[in-house]
């Protein structure tokens, strides 16, 4: 297949079974991925979302040639991950979450220099690129500190710098923010749109809904090794949530409003909360019904400070998908 298509990553019927043997040698098989089909266009930020054990890391490991599929195929920029692993490795960077995978006894700079040498980057370029990337992830000051003395967030930033050493057009990030405090996680997230802006294709796995919603232009939800839904975040929310949400800010609060609204057809739930001098009503409506007019009627147009109808959150959609 040509490397000239607009598809960066393609999985066809991708399956992976892990086998292990117990003490007496009996084999146990565990299906981690079954028949996964994915297509990621070049330049996309693609989110692979799913609960723990869904098969996200397995997918990333297959795509970065660390693991062979049991059946099915995966291609990166047209190169088969099994038979053209060399080309795949040259064109991808992988950033695995967690604290392992870096040399603790040597400095951040030395870690970078080691992986540069490993990847055949000539020494002069290696030096320049190391300095550039460490600066980019804010580690210049700690370049000469042994990595075992790094904080969790610093380690993760070094992981990112290492992943960018070869300036790969395709990046795989496996739960890059796991175990990182909110501010550190936000800093890490900022790199994602920046890298996409440089034209890189990014596959990001996460189990944080908000992260996927915020960063990705397409999301695939996987559950127990199978694709459960795929689409733009907004699309997934609309398609998979059986609810739509109307939020009303009422300037003259009334206690009975809740009960009156509940009487309307298609209203499933009403929550009321005080917002300063106002009352905020969050009305869950069966999707497909437009109740804005009826709500206005019940509350009284003159009492409404603001009325918006919004999509449900990704979390609401996600929970619906996984329940099935």
């Amino acid at each position: 297949m040509a490397a000239t298509t607009s598809i960066a990553v393609e999985c066809k019927d991708l399956s992976r079974t892990y086998s292990s043997r117990n003490v007496v040698g009996r084999r146990r098989d565990f299906v981690a991925l079954q028949g996964l089909n994915l297509e990621i266009p070049k330049g996309a930020i693609f989110g692979l979302l799913g609960p723990n054990g869904a098969g996200k890391t397995t997918t990333v490991r297959i795509l970065s040639t660390l693991l062979t599929p049991t059946s099915g195929t995966a291609r990166v920029l047209g190169y088969d991950v099994e038979t053209q692993a060399r080309q795949v490795r040259r064109n991808t960077g992988f950033i695995l979450g967690g604290e392992r995978g870096l040399y603790g006894r040597i400095t951040g700079e030395q870690n970078m220099r080691f992986f540069a040498a490993l990847n055949h980057i000539n020494p002069r370029d290696a030096k320049r690129r190391t300095a550039q990337l460490l600066d980019r992830v804010g580690l210049t000051e700690h370049a000469r500190t042994p990595v075992e003395n790094y904080s969790r967030g610093m380690t993760q930033r070094l992981h990112i710098a290492r992943g960018l050493l070869t300036d790969p057009p395709v990046l795989f990030m496996d739960e890059p923010t796991i175990g990182i405090d909110p501010i550190g996680a936000q800093e890490l997230r900022n790199y994602v749109p920046e890298l996409a802006g440089e034209g890189k294709t990014i596959l990001l796995t996460t189990h944080y809904m908000a992260e996927a919603d915020m960063l990705c232009d397409t999301i695939a939800i996987i559950d127990r090794g199978e694709l459960a839904a795929v689409g733009a975040p907004g699309e997934i929310k609309r398609r998979f949530s059986k609810l739509a949400i109307i939020e009303v800010i009422v300037n003259r609060p009334r206690e009975q409003l809740e009960a009156e609204l509940l009487k309307l057809d298609a209203v499933e739930r009403v929550e009321s909360a005080a917002e300063g001098p106002f009352q905020k009503l969050t009305i869950s409506v069966t999707s497909g019904f437009d109740l804005r007019e009826k709500v206005t009627e019940v509350v009284g147009a003159e009492n409404i400070e603001d009325l918006v109808s919004r999509d449900p959150t990704l979390e609401e959609a996600y929970i619906n998908i996984l329940k099935r």
Partner: peptide, 13 residues
């Protein structure tokens, strides 16, 4: 320490 994956996942000779 888990660096083996990164060494073998590289295009190193």
């Amino acid at each position: 320490i888990g660096t083996l994956a990164h060494v073998l996942g590289s295009s190193g000779n």
